[in-house]
Structures are given as C-alpha cells and as structure tokens.
Design a protein around this nucleic acid. Structure first.
Lengths: 126, 126
DNA sequence: CGGAATCCGTTAAGATACTG
DNA sequence: CAGTATCTTAACGGATTCCG
C-alpha cells in the first residue's frame, strides 16, 4: 500500500487511509498542519494573499497579535519558504513580506476556510 | 455595513477586505481559525471524518498526541459542537466520538489541506 | 522611526503516573 | 478504557531596550 506517497496519485487523502494502518505522519494533512498550524500563520498568509506588506502594515491588519509573535511566525514562515522577506537598508527601516508561489497555492485552503467560517457562524446563529 | 454577514453573499472573503478597512475579526477565516486552529484539532477531525471512534482508537491513530491534550482538544471541539461525545455506562468504559454535520462541512478544507500538503512536500523535494 | 531582540509572566502542550 | 493529577517544557503576550 501507499506507493511513493508523493505525486503519483492524490487519492491517498480522500478516504480513510488512517484506518488502513498507515501512520498519520504519512498523511499530507499532518504535513500541512505542521507548517501552517501555528495560531497566526494562516491569518498572516491570508493577509499576504496577493499583497506585499510591511511589518507594520501586517501588525495593523492583525491587531491582536503581538510584535514578538508576529516576528516569530514570519520567521518560521520564511524558513518554510512561504514568505519572502526583503529588507531595505534605509532609515527609517523597511521590511517587506511577500507570499511565495507555494503560499499562493494555499488559495483553495483559504477559500474553504472562509466558507466554513461562515457556515460555523450561521450554525451558531450569531 | 455588512448585511447580516452570514448567508446572503459569500464574496466577502474572496478579495482584499482587510485592505478595505475592515477589522480582521470580521473575516470568517479568523472565526474558522479560532475554532479549528488548535494544533491537533484538524487532525482529530480528519480522523473522525466519516468515522465514529473511541478515545483509544483516536489515540492510536494520532500517536504523537498526549492523552491530556487529546482530551482537552476533544472537549473543546465538543463545546464548539464539532464532535459529539457518547458515553456508554459499561465496564470497561467506552466513549465514542463522532463528527457533527457542522464538522463534516469541513470536507473541502481537509481536501484542500491535503492537496496543499502534497504540494508542499513536493516543493521541498522530500 | 520601524523592526526586532531580550527579559519576564502566563497559558497551552508534552510526559508520566495514577484512578474510577 | 478513558480519563485525571502532577510536573515539566514550549508557545504566546507585554514591556522594555537596541540598532540601523
């Protein structure tokens, strides 16, 4: 079972592969959560969608995050090659963050999340 | 502003509403992350997809989670009405967890996450 | 001045042992 | 079996300091 788990077939995740005895670590969902499972990462990437933003702009768009955490999460995203960080040697300093093509492929995830968020609100009759 | 933000239009999330001056808290993505943003919640729900599982079965399927965390996350999911918890008054005890219809609506999110996880692996040439 | 590093307190999560 | 109790470790928030 599970031939080369990478690119040949994409059926792996559709069904109940976990019940087939496979370790969950083999599942791409676990990989995805590992990378974007941080509390703020999806929101950061959502704000970075189609946008290049400075650190301060991101901070303004995500008011509830602390500077420190924003820095940490951005560094982590950078390490995973989901955001590109460009530093301008200027005064005042300027650092711009851009989503990489890999991050842009998250589009469907963001859309699905968005739709579900609405369904959730509806179900909880807000 | 934002007529009933629930079911009328679903365009809200497609574009750049954050740049429109809206607080991010208005965005359903933030709602979704609030609910399923826990480190393990998506993975739990993924394993619960189309399946009713006992506590121990879930634990086996998600080896890296601790009992305590699994309990906590399940309780949180239960409070948000994403899983139903059924206790059988037997010896030995038996507790079954089932995804609610609301959780089942996460299907597209899980699918998108799964696909992206594969793309991510591929990009990092694993 | 903007961005980030540091110190510290609080909360979430991990490991292990133990109980109904 | 399905948790709870306890302790330890890692993640996040706040404030201050630093540096270009």
């Amino acid at each position: 079972m599970a031939e080369s788990l990478a690119l040949t077939t994409e059926k792996k995740c559709e069904g109940n592969l976990n019940q087939s005895g496979l370790d969950v670590d083999e599942c791409p969902v676990v990989t995805a959560i590992d990378v974007i499972g941080g509390k703020w990462k999806v929101i950061i990437l959502y704000n970075l969608r189609d946008n290049t933003l400075r650190f301060g702009e991101l901070k303004k768009l995500i008011p509830h995050i602390s500077q420190k955490t924003l820095t940490t999460q951005l560094r982590s995203l950078e390490a995973d090659k989901l955001v590109a960080r460009k530093v301008y040697a200027e005064v005042p300093p300027r650092v711009e963050y851009t989503a990489t093509p890999l991050a842009e492929q998250l589009g469907p995830v963001l859309d699905a999340l968005c739709q579900w968020g609405q369904a959730y609100r509806q179900a909880h009759q807000s």
